[in-house]
Simulated scan of single mutants.
Amino acid sequence: MQLRPVGYPVLLMRKFFGYILSPIFYLLFGVIITVFHPIQWLCLKLGGYQAHKKCVDTLNCCLVACYYVLGNTVSFINKQQLPTDRPILFVANHQSMYDIPPLIFFLRKYHGKFISKIELAKGIPSISFNLRHGGAANIDRKDPKQSIAEILKLANNMKAKNWSAFIFPEGTRAKTGKVKPFNVGGIAVILKKATNVLVVPVAINHSWEMVRYGFFPLNTFTRMSWEVLTPIEPQGLSAEEVVAQTEARIKEKIVLN
């Protein structure tokens, strides 16, 4: 792990601007998800899956653009030649809710679906609609049978429709950026069911800094990055070995303050 010290006066300045810019960010973010909610419904009803997906891709492009209102920047690095003729399981560390829009937008050609908490599938304009109707696995952490059934359903769709999936195996957000131990469960289910899946680690850096102070103020002038790492071919490896390799590769790329 590398260290990148940040001076206290700089932190204070960024927090100060957060008080000024966060209301603008939340206003724009709220307008975008509200406007896109009925558009998603129309696209799904009139154009089916493909139209709905294009709408969701555009939605997440707009959400990523909101980050720049705070002076934050997004660097998405993908030097890998990933196949489009087989499903991919993108495995990433999880630092904040703002990890998600860049993954959806920049990896849009792989038709990635999220394994998400069932609580997020209701009450949030646009986002909940997409989780309910876009092919995500919405799992109830208090109900293991339901969770496994949802992940199996997603794995079947990955195999049948050549969809990909995103999973955060830490299970919860790392509030300081330090990677928590990876859980094997969900990955093991997908590896067993979608036998032709390719596992691709993604290292996310500094998105936790955007929510350093919680909901308000959001932090400013943060250089966030997403990096797609070398794929792991799971054939011949146990789920535990795949998860261990994925976790190790991601940890090598994480930069802590």
Rank of each mutant, 00 (worst) to 15 (best):
L229S: 02
Q80T: 06
F106H: 11
K180I: 13
Q146I: 04
V179L: 08
K159C: 09
L218Y: 01
L107V: 01
V199C: 11
A137V: 08
L3K: 15
H133Y: 07
I33Q: 01
I115Y: 01
L21I: 00
N78G: 08
L218N: 00
S238Y: 13
H206F: 15
M224C: 09
L21M: 03
G71M: 01
G47D: 10
A239K: 06
Y98N: 11
V91P: 03
P217Q: 04
Q245Y: 04
L27K: 09
P169V: 02
A248R: 06
G177F: 04
G123R: 15
R141K: 10
K180Q: 15
K193C: 05
E240H: 11
T58N: 13
Y213L: 07
T195A: 10
K253L: 14
R86A: 07
L154D: 02
I187G: 05
W226N: 02
K153Y: 15
G48R: 14
I24S: 09
K45V: 15
R86W: 10
Y67S: 02
Y68N: 12
K193L: 06
I32Y: 02
I32N: 00
G123C: 12
A165I: 04
G214V: 05
V91D: 01
Q81V: 11
V6K: 14
Y8V: 14
M158C: 11
A121C: 12
V56R: 06
L21H: 00
R14P: 00
